[in-house]
């Protein structure tokens, strides 16, 4: 046998049957094992003969005496491994068992999927709600902080000895109004605290005036500011007044005066 092995002729030569029945010599056995490794069809032919022979000999068997069996097992007693109570371990039974277990697991898994998905959804909703609440609270907290900081700054400003405080009481013809101007004498910054002023009607807005040498100078419009409202800088003034003007203000006062206060 060399490179070009005619496997069909080899299979038909009888050497395979000779090998299986234990009739082959050493050289034939060595050759067959080499070829078997190279040619699956030779391996298949060996297997086919072995299987057929086994089947035929099983059918052509003779009953073995129970006594022989007993003598055999008595003789080998002590060489057997301890065995756990015999479990059914046949391949087919085992596969059935595995298949049943797999189906059961699948069903349980599917049920758990539904259950956990619902749990997940409700948890997710709760989480989103909490997240929204958190942002709301954080926002409110931020706003409060800003407001507190502003108020603290305002307090600093109000208590600063270099800041003049001008209380403006109700102007003649009005009652119960009050506003306060804080005027930084160093920077000339003007702040207004509208203590008590009626809400401005629609289309109207309060305007602050500095009275300089008897003439009103525009000191800015009063917006709906919290705490102190930053107004225009005023370098010199003898008094301050607030009038109600049209929205956006006027170059010189036209509406009614609500409060008036003198500097000093």
């Amino acid at each position: 046998m060399s490179d070009n092995v005619d496997t069909k002729a080899y299979i038909e030569s009888g050497v395979i049957e000779s090998y299986v029945l234990g009739l082959a010599n050493d050289q034939e056995i060595a050759e067959l094992r080499q070829l078997t490794a190279l040619y699956p069809e030779i391996q298949a032919a060996i297997h086919a003969f072995e299987t057929a022979l086994e089947k035929q000999l099983q059918n052509a068997g003779s009953p073995a005496h129970e006594n022989t069996r007993k003598m055999l097992f008595d003789r080998l007693d002590g060489t057997f491994a301890e065995e756990a109570p015999v479990r059914s371990f046949s391949r087919a039974g085992f596969v059935k068992y595995i298949a049943a277990a797999a189906v059961l697991l699948l069903v349980v898994s599917a049920a758990l999927n539904v259950y956990f998905y619902n749990r997940f959804r409700s948890a997710n909703h709760a989480f989103l709600a909490l997240l929204t609440e958190k942002y709301t609270i954080a926002g409110a907290s931020g706003a409060m902080q800003t407001q507190m900081l502003g108020m603290y700054e305002n307090m600093q400003l109000m208590s600063d000895p270099a800041v003049a405080k001008i209380s403006m009481a109700s102007a003649p013809g009005t009652e119960g109004n009050l506003a306060t101007v804080f005027w930084d004498t160093r920077t000339k910054d003007v702040y207004l605290l509208p203590n008590k002023l009626p809400a401005a009607p629609a289309g109207k807005q309060y305007q602050l005036w500095a009275i300089v040498n008897g003439k009103p100078v525009d000191a800015g419009m009063i917006d709906s500011c919290t705490g102190l409202c930053r107004m225009k800088n005023i370098t010199a003034a003898q008094a301050f007044a607030v009038t109600l003007e049209k929205k956006g203000g006027n170059p010189s006062p036209e509406g009614q005066m609500y409060v008036l206060g003198k500097v000093g």
């Binding site: 086994e54 000999l57 099983q58 052509a60 068997g61 003779s62 009953p63 073995a64 022989t68 069996r69 055999l72 097992f73 080998l76 060489t79 057997f80 491994a81 065995e83 015999v86």
Partner: peptide, 24 residues
């Protein structure tokens, strides 16, 4: 190879008849 008595018993039940015939 794991020295199972029950499997050796199975082996006997299944093959003793066929082997005994060839021995005979």
């Amino acid at each position: 190879r794991n020295r199972s008595r029950s499997v050796f018993s199975y082996l006997y039940e299944h093959y003793a008849g066929a082997l005994r015939a060839v021995i005979l």
